[in-house]
């Protein structure tokens, strides 16, 4: 009898799936499938928290939102001031007071006093100005120019 025939006649050991099979499957599922699911609510919660912080910041610190806006698009308004000279109209004293009153509800930065610009020559090129744009009842653009004497205080 050859070794081949002898080996072929031996019965291979049985390996019935016991508790180990179930345990390993559970551990694998936990490791490779639950991990993704547990990240999803965590990521959602973090995103929601960031949004909430941003919202509160915009409400409590509108200046900050203003600064962020001007940080990203300062040239847009400056260019508008420069290019809209053809239709330029300076405000009357009464209109100026109304506009200041309206803008004061949007900003509490008292250290950047408003300048009533009657001529663009009034603006000193060596000084810094904060330019805000608003619209009047006739949907006309009104540019509100504030001289910045110091960095706005961060609250």
């Amino acid at each position: 009898m050859s070794m081949r025939k002898y080996l072929e006649s031996i019965k291979a050991p049985e390996a019935p799936p016991g508790p180990f099979s179930v345990r390993l499957k559970y551990e694998l599922k936990k490791e490779f499938f639950d991990r993704g699911r547990s990240w999803f609510p965590m990521a959602s919660a973090v995103a929601a928290a960031i949004m909430l912080v941003l919202l509160i910041t915009v409400i409590v610190q509108p200046d900050l939102a203003d600064q962020v806006h001007f940080a990203f698009a300062p040239q847009q308004i400056e260019q508008s001031v420069a290019t809209e000279t053809g239709n330029r109209q300076f405000l009357s004293d009464e209109e100026y007071s109304q506009t200041v009153a309206r803008l004061q509800t949007m900003s509490n930065d008292s250290r950047s006093p408003a300048i009533h610009v009657r001529d663009l020559q009034d603006l000193d090129p060596d000084k810094s100005y904060l330019i805000r744009r608003t619209t009047d009842d006739s949907d006309r653009n009104i540019y509100f120019v504030s001289e910045v004497r110091s960095r706005p205080k961060m609250y």
Binding site: A12, E14, A15, P17, S21, L24, K25, L28, K29
Partner: peptide, 15 residues
């Protein structure tokens, strides 16, 4: 799908 793959191969590999 993982369940099915596992059941198909576990016993053979274990043996």
């Amino acid at each position: 799908a993982f369940d099915q793959i596992y059941e198909m191969h576990f016993q053979k590999i274990f043996r």
